[in-house]
């Protein structure tokens, strides 16, 4: 099971240029909105046509500009779950699911497979409902049922949770994750939410302004994003220009400090990322005097902003995030951070 994508498409001043291979389960395309994630999915599904390139699914060529191959969406066997689920409003749940079985010509088999899918997705009793009578979660299940029953070889999910309320989202994430594991085929999911990407995927492809920056296993990406873009997308709050001094020392001119790192610093370092959770008043490494500036309270955590003593005026304050109950009585004079927690960024 593998998907190979190498496509280019020019749209006005925006250029999409993406090349990656996805295999073994769920891959997430992570990027800010408007970076070309959805366009990539549409090109794979055959709804949009790339200017150039090649798309291959399990050895089957779906698109090849040089050989003039461009399969119609109907021939690609690629399931597409739209952000708004795109259920046909004039049809009942059952009719919607039957649409996924349009390739099945045998009427009895059609009914049997629809019933089996309705049971599998726990939609019994809703068969005759129209989409607008369903809750967001039920709509998602119908849309998935309709796609899965058509037996796609690849499943594309476009922001599958964005139409749902927050409290439903987490429950459905677990449900969908288990379902995808049983589906057992390639899944490509688009999201701008790093938590969602972390929850759902085995590997993540980071996209920025139409380019694909890097593809890595999910945990490896969060541990070592490698680029400024990837660091920001994985939620790193403190990204600051830096310079290599030696194999384990970096200078951060904006903050007026030098820090030790555990990972070896290579030539070409341009910035470092320090996750807001990792500062500590007790850490001995990279300990420098700091000055309190601002704070922002969240339901269970607090963000304290501070500046290093010699920090440049135009450099934004540094974020320190900690659980509310861990908040020290007085703001510490000095804060440290372990060298292992400094992300080295090269791009």
């Amino acid at each position: 099971m593998s998907l190979f994508v190498d496509i280019q498409k020019q749209m006005g001043s925006f250029r999409l240029d993406v090349r990656f291979t996805a295999e073994n389960g769920v891959t997430c395309l992570l990027g800010a909105s408007g970076c070309g994630k959805s366009m990539t999915l549409k090109c794979i599904a055959g709804i949009e046509k790339p200017d150039k390139g090649r798309i291959e699914l399990d050895g089957r060529v779906l698109f090849d500009s040089e050989k003039h191959i461009d399969l119609r969406p109907q021939q690609r066997r690629v399931g597409y779950l739209f952000q708004n689920y795109a259920l046909f409003p004039n049809m009942t749940v059952r009719q919607n699911i039957l649409c996924g079985l349009c390739r099945e010509k045998d009427r009895a088999a059609k009914a049997r497979r629809a019933d089996a899918m309705i049971a599998l997705m726990q939609l019994e009793g809703l068969e005759e409902h129209k989409p607008h009578q369903l809750s967001g979660g039920q709509q998602q299940r119908v849309a998935l049922a309709r796609i899965l029953v058509s037996d796609p070889q690849l499943l594309l999910l476009d922001e599958p949770f964005s139409a749902l309320d927050g409290h439903l989202r987490d429950a459905l994430k677990i449900e969908l994750r288990d379902l995808l594991a049983r589906f057992g085929r390639e899944v490509l999911m688009v999201t701008h939410d790093r938590t969602e990407a972390y929850n759902m995927s085995a590997s993540i492809a980071v996209m920025d302004e139409g380019r694909l920056m890097t593809v890595k296993p999910t945990k490896a990406l969060f541990a070592d994003p490698g680029s400024i873009r990837a660091a920001i997308l994985t939620g790193c709050k403190n990204v600051v220009p830096a310079r290599r001094i030696d194999a384990h020392t970096v200078e951060i001119p904006d903050w007026g400090v030098c820090m030790e790192t555990r990972q070896a610093v290579k030539e070409g370092l341009c910035a470092v990322g320090l996750r807001a959770h990792y500062f500590s008043p007790t850490a001995q490494q990279n300990r420098f005097p700091v000055v309190y500036c601002e704070e922002m309270e969240e339901p269970f955590e607090i963000i304290l902003q501070f500046r290093y003593q010699n920090q440049k005026k135009d450099s934004p304050p540094v974020w320190w995030r900690l659980p509310k109950d861990k908040r020290p009585a007085a703001f510490p004079q000095e804060l440290g951070i372990a060298g292992a927690n400094i992300l080295l960024l090269y791009e």
Binding site: Q74, R76, Y80, F82, Q83, A86, C99, C102, I147
Partner: peptide, 13 residues
């Protein structure tokens, strides 16, 4: 909603 037409196409309609 063009998504309706697109999803129909990907389903094979």
């Amino acid at each position: 909603d063009q998504n309706l037409a697109w999803s129909g196409q990907t389903l094979g309609l």
